[in-house]
Design a protein around this nucleic acid. Structure first.
Lengths: 232, 232
DNA sequence: TAGTGGTCTAGACCACCGT
DNA sequence: CGGTGGTCTAGACCACTAC
């Protein structure tokens, strides 16, 4: 068997879609027709169609047929790790502060808690080649038995900080990316004397019930970081 | 039949993974064992496992078994459309220039062409509520028969500009996101008088052979745009 | 050799859609 | 009603892994 029948079906239909022989909205030949065309059983044909559906090429409407999907022109995948990006990576971390605080209005609202709940605040500086490149603040819901071990915190990424408490599979995450002009404190931390801009990345972690578990904000020197996204 | 057997298998195993009863690297019960447990045929069990594999929960090694995958902690999905973002959206577009140019060194290298090839340059301004919010430049490989119709170009997103030439399914795309301080020309275009930072998004489009088809750079006022990414 | 997953068949019954 | 996709079965043969 050179390549499985179902993969040949996949490749053939992909080719037809990529060459515009099949256009978005068109119906793919029916399962019966494909069975005849390839001399295959229906389960084999359906396996091929399932692959195409998973990769976003087609969708099916029961009772009607399989149809070519409109491509997701706006969808990108981005791999973000606060200490690594496409042009540089952090090689040193300095823990500025670990503290338990009471949240202010905005933080309480971001974390969906009341203002009398305890929050762990972690402030760090990231360095590359000895120079400070990012200022990082994390806020984590304080939970009994939460290990606040400085050694563990200093070098951890945000999801890792929760790994003792939550199975990482159960984490939902959200990024918000924007640019800003640094305030005086951040200018001092990052040795910025001129008009350098910041790239700011906010990270929010949620548990499976969509309850916020933590908020992280990382302020990068604009000349340090580029984020990269790719389609597919 | 309340819910299909294969989905019950999926849900049960997901629960075990999310509750850490099954940890990354653990083996999922063998297909035979699941057949017995659910009184189902092997194809049904395999369908359930296929769903879990597609969603990134498990992977399989032929001859050995199915295993729980380490979650992709750094992966986010971002929907980027140069005219829409999570806090605002463009409601007006002004075409500044459409021209055919010869690329300079850097552009020729970005587009992987020689400097004597023609390139279409499109410059636009984006407005929200009457105020300019972004300056946008696109470079497209010039190809014979390429329709340069101003009406089509003025309001199109980048992938749409190529839709006459390339089936959109065949497009690969890449984003690069960074912050910058505006130069004088961009300050003028965007009515920036103070120290406002820019968020810059570069978009590259490739055909299926990974040949660059175009480069787009959009300079957003930092107070205008936030990009948002989500896990899953 | 026994156990695992990968591919495949030739049927079946069901729900849904359109005529 | 006939055609479509959705679910499911009870087998089969294969390649790979581990002992």
């Amino acid at each position: 068997m050179v390549s499985p029948v179902y993969l040949r079906i996949v490749e053939d239909i992909k080719k037809k879609i990529n060459s515009a022989e099949l256009k978005p909205g068109d119906t793919v030949p029916s399962e019966k027709a494909l069975c005849d065309e390839y001399g295959a059983s229906r389960m084999t044909v359906r396996k091929g169609l399932a692959v195409l559906a998973n990769e976003g090429y087609i969708y099916s409407i029961p009772g009607k047929g399989n149809f070519v999907r409109k491509p997701e022109l706006n969808k990108y995948t981005i791999y973000y790790d606060e200490k690594n990006n496409s042009i540089n990576s952090v090689d040193q971390t300095k823990l500025l502060e670990v503290n338990i605080i009471m949240p202010d209005e905005k933080l309480a609202s971001d974390l969906q808690i009341t203002k009398n709940k305890n929050v762990i605040m972690i402030r760090r500086l990231f360095y590359t080649d000895g120079a400070p490149v990012a200022y990082d603040v994390k806020y984590l819901l304080y939970q009994k038995g939460m290990p606040i071990v400085e050694k563990e915190i200093e070098h951890a990424t945000f999801p890792e900080m929760l790994s003792k408490k939550v199975p990482l599979f159960a984490l939902k995450k959200e990024l918000v990316i924007y640019s800003a002009v640094p305030g005086d404190d951040i200018k001092r931390y990052l040795n910025i004397y001129d008009g350098l801009a910041l790239l700011v990345v906010e990270q929010k972690l949620y548990n499976t019930e969509n309850k916020p578990m933590g908020l992280g904000i990382t302020y990068y020197r604009g000349d340090y970081i580029k984020l990269q996204g790719i389609s597919e």
